[in-house]
């Protein structure tokens, strides 16, 4: 089942990338994706981990939109830091609690922190992230907690 899905996804990617739809070339694509999956199966290097994609897509899209706005805001803030004559740097390394339950949501949260310029996830622990900020202010704790809550909200059964 899984093998078939993988082959189908690979074949779909081939169709998207090639852009030439003649029978022979599509046949090449099909053979290539099947051989790739077969060789991967033979090598037996897949770890068999299943990542449950249990996110509600609508909320996730909403979150992406919100994240874009945040990225824009913090981009402008860091740009200002870079371009002013006397760079107002106030570095700090602090803990941020991560209240997400699934690993996927934690990954999304950590990557979102890193994606917004000015804050970077440096180390992950069980329930905490170490976050490094370049121009730290006391509001950052609240802002990151807010972001964490938003990520938790797109999980199934999360507080809406």
């Amino acid at each position: 089942m899984r093998v078939v899905v993988t082959a189908l996804i690979l074949f779909l990617l081939w169709l998207l990338m090639s852009g030439i739809y003649k029978p022979m070339i599509i046949g090449f694509g099909a053979v290539a994706s099947i051989v790739a999956v077969y060789v991967g199966q033979r090598m037996d290097r897949a770890d068999g981990d299943r990542v449950a994609l249990l996110l509600s897509p609508l909320k996730f899209l909403g979150y992406l939109g919100w994240l874009m706005i945040e990225i824009a805001k913090s981009n402008i803030a860091v740009t200002r830091t870079i371009l002013t004559q006397k760079m107002p740097i106030r570095q700090n390394l602090f803990r941020v609690p991560s209240c997400q339950r699934s690993e996927l949501a934690q990954v999304i949260f950590a990557n979102s922190i890193t994606l917004t310029p000015g804050t970077i996830t440096v180390e992950t622990e069980e329930n905490d992230f170490w976050v490094h900020a370049v121009s730290f202010s006391e509001d950052d704790h609240e802002a990151l907690a807010d972001m964490g809550a938003r990520v938790a909200a797109i999980e199934p059964g999360g507080a809406a």
Partner: peptide
Amino acid sequence: SRLHAVSVADSG
């Protein structure tokens, strides 16, 4: 601090 500068170019 350079980490953050790179992430401006990489994301925005």
